[in-house]
Simulated assay, not measured.
Amino acid sequence: MTSIVNVHDAKTHFSKLLDRAHAGEEIILAKAGKPYARLVPLERPKVERRPGRLKLANRIPDSFFFDPLPEEELRAWE
């Protein structure tokens, strides 16, 4: 459903217009009776995000980062 709202009324009732747009209504803003802009809801994300769904099966042990480097690696840094 689309409704046309004058800019002056839109400024007065902006919060209510945002609620209507969020509910799915398309609102045309008119200036001097001529369509000027469109207020529409944002598209919803297609996939619902779920935290932690990509957890690694084989985690790197914490001690891995604190193990001493091999001799070849130490020589390469010198």
Rank of each mutant, 00 (worst) to 15 (best):
Met1Ser: 08
Thr2Ile: 09
Thr2Ser: 08
Ser3Asn: 06
Val5Gln: 00
Asn6Gly: 03
Asn6Pro: 00
Asn6Arg: 07
Asn6Gln: 09
Val7Gly: 01
Val7Tyr: 01
His8Ser: 06
His8Glu: 06
Asp9Lys: 03
Asp9Arg: 02
Lys11Leu: 13
Lys11Gln: 05
Thr12Tyr: 08
His13Ser: 12
Phe14Tyr: 11
Phe14Glu: 03
Phe14His: 06
Phe14Met: 07
Ser15Arg: 05
Lys16Arg: 13
Leu17Pro: 00
Leu17His: 01
Leu17Phe: 03
Leu18Thr: 07
Leu18Lys: 08
Leu18Trp: 03
Leu18His: 04
Asp19His: 12
Arg20Tyr: 07
Arg20Asn: 03
Arg20Cys: 03
Ala21Asp: 02
Ala21Lys: 02
Ala21Phe: 04
His22Trp: 10
His22Gln: 12
His22Ile: 10
Ala23Met: 05
Ala23Leu: 04
Glu25Cys: 01
Ile27Trp: 01
Ile27Pro: 00
Ile28Met: 05
Ile28Asp: 00
Ile28Cys: 01
Ala30Asn: 02
Ala32Val: 05
Ala32Tyr: 09
Ala32His: 09
Gly33Val: 02
Lys34Pro: 00
Pro35Gln: 06
Pro35His: 04
Tyr36Phe: 12
Ala37Thr: 01
Arg38Leu: 09
Arg38Phe: 05
Leu39Asn: 00
Val40Ser: 13
Val40Glu: 08
Val40Trp: 04
Val40Asn: 04
Val40Leu: 07
Pro41Tyr: 07
Leu42Asn: 07
Leu42Glu: 10
Arg44His: 10
Arg44Gln: 13
Pro45Lys: 05
Pro45Thr: 03
Lys46Cys: 02
Lys46Thr: 05
Val47Trp: 07
Val47His: 08
Glu48Phe: 09
Glu48Gln: 10
Glu48Lys: 12
Glu48Ser: 08
Arg49Phe: 15
Arg50Thr: 13
Arg50Lys: 12
Arg50Asn: 05
Arg50Trp: 08
Pro51Asn: 07
Pro51His: 09
Pro51Leu: 14
Leu54Gly: 13
Leu54Met: 11
Lys55Gly: 06
Lys55Asn: 09
Lys55Leu: 14
Leu56Ile: 08
Leu56His: 11
Ala57Pro: 00
Arg59Glu: 10
Arg59Ala: 15
Ile60Thr: 15
Pro61Met: 05
Pro61Ile: 06
Pro61Ser: 11
Pro61Asn: 06
Asp62His: 07
Asp62Cys: 03
Ser63Met: 10
Ser63Glu: 15
Phe64Met: 02
Phe65Trp: 08
Phe66Asn: 10
Phe66Thr: 15
Asp67Pro: 00
Pro68Ile: 07
Leu69Trp: 08
Leu69Cys: 03
Pro70Arg: 12
Pro70Ala: 13
Glu72Gln: 12
Glu72Cys: 07
Glu73Lys: 10
Glu73Met: 14
Glu73Asp: 13
Glu73Tyr: 14
Arg75Leu: 14
Arg75Trp: 12
Arg75Glu: 12
Ala76Val: 07
Ala76Leu: 14
Glu78Asp: 15
